[in-house]
């Protein structure tokens, strides 16, 4: 056997079965979901095999021949999910960014220990970490009990089942996602540039805006994207900390599948979540490849 043929056989053995597996069980389901989002919902659940583009129109609030007149409820849920996800990103950044600077300047030993402490929760059960916040925030939870016993409040506060509780829960579980990329770029920060800026008379605030922030921007953008994507379609956090009051995209999708049994509409909603993800990734890939080109030119 010639070497070329042998290598080709090796490659086929290595990649063949996996490619088949992923084509059937990953790309296949996504393709079927895409098709389903353009089909008509059956009257008693299930789908009818006719082309039906109204699922997407319904999300945007347009009238739908089967269900309702103009109703912006779904677009409101979509926008609200975007808002909550954006606030989560912002809050996670505020939590992680200063800490990254502090940890980046520690000695090697302490640095590794701190990174270990930050990644450790990632390996523990997500649902357990969320449950902890139920115990802390609910009516008879830790915060309310403490405030009541000190007499600072007369009645328990509504902490759980609010947008704030959802954001808090998401920040808590997504901290490692935000911290790691931010930390990677903070650690690489060239402090001589910061010193130069200060020596040349720029104040600390100006140095921050003009030097530190732009240089750490790649990490911030990276962290923002990998927090935003799972936050947007999240359904576990709102289900546990948002109760029935706060509906997000994830809960709406779940409802279409397990309660309303309108699979085409649910698929259309999932397509929206997926397209947001793809757009964000494309923007990121494009921006980082341009930055790579810039860096190459400057060299």
């Amino acid at each position: 056997m010639s070497i070329a043929i042998r290598r080709r056989v090796q490659l086929a053995v290595l990649l063949g079965p996996v490619s088949l597996f992923l084509a059937v069980f990953f790309l296949g389901p996504l393709a079927i979901m895409m098709v389903t989002s353009f089909l008509a919902p059956g009257l008693y659940g299930g789908v009818e095999w006719t082309f039906y583009p109204h699922n997407f129109g319904r999300i945007l609030g347009f009238a739908d021949p089967m269900f309702e007149d103009f109703d912006p409820v779904y677009i409101a849920i979509f926008l609200r999910s975007v808002k909550i996800a954006a606030l989560t990103v912002l809050a996670a950044l505020i939590v992680c960014y200063p800490a990254a600077f502090c940890i980046a300047r520690l000695s090697e030993r302490w640095k590794n220990f701190c990174l270990f402490l930050i990644t450790l929760p990632f390996f523990t059960s997500l649902i357990v970490r969320l449950f902890v916040w139920v115990l802390i925030l609910r009516q008879t939870g830790l915060v309310n009990e403490m405030l009541l016993s000190t007499g600072m409040i007369a009645r328990p506060l509504d902490l759980i089942y609010t947008d704030g509780a959802i954001i808090l829960g998401m920040v808590y579980v997504f901290i490692p996602f935000m911290f790691m990329p931010v930390y990677a770029s903070v650690e690489k920060l060239d402090w001589t540039l910061v010193r130069a800026s200060l020596d040349l008379g720029a104040g600390p605030i100006r140095t921050f805006w003009r030097i530190i922030l732009p240089l750490t921007a790649p990490g911030i953008v990276g962290g923002a994207i990998i927090v935003f994507i799972p936050a947007l379609g999240n359904f576990v956090v709102p289900a546990i900390l948002g109760g029935a009051k706060v509906m997000m995209l994830g809960n709406l999708i779940e409802q279409q599948f397990l309660a309303a049994r309108n699979w085409p509409f649910g698929s259309a909603l999932a397509m929206m979540v997926m397209s947001v993800m793809l757009v964000l990734l494309l923007v990121y890939v494009f921006a980082s490849s341009r930055r790579g080109a810039d860096a190459a030119l400057n060299r």
């Binding site: 389901p29 979901m33 947007l232 379609g233 599948f257 698929s267 993800m277």
Partner: peptide
């Protein structure tokens, strides 16, 4: 892709499939 895909999207796609 499978890692970045929001889990709810993958979940329902698999369900339909």
């Amino acid at each position: 892709m499978p890692m970045l895909m929001p889990d709810i999207v993958l979940g329902i796609a698999l369900l339909i499939f």
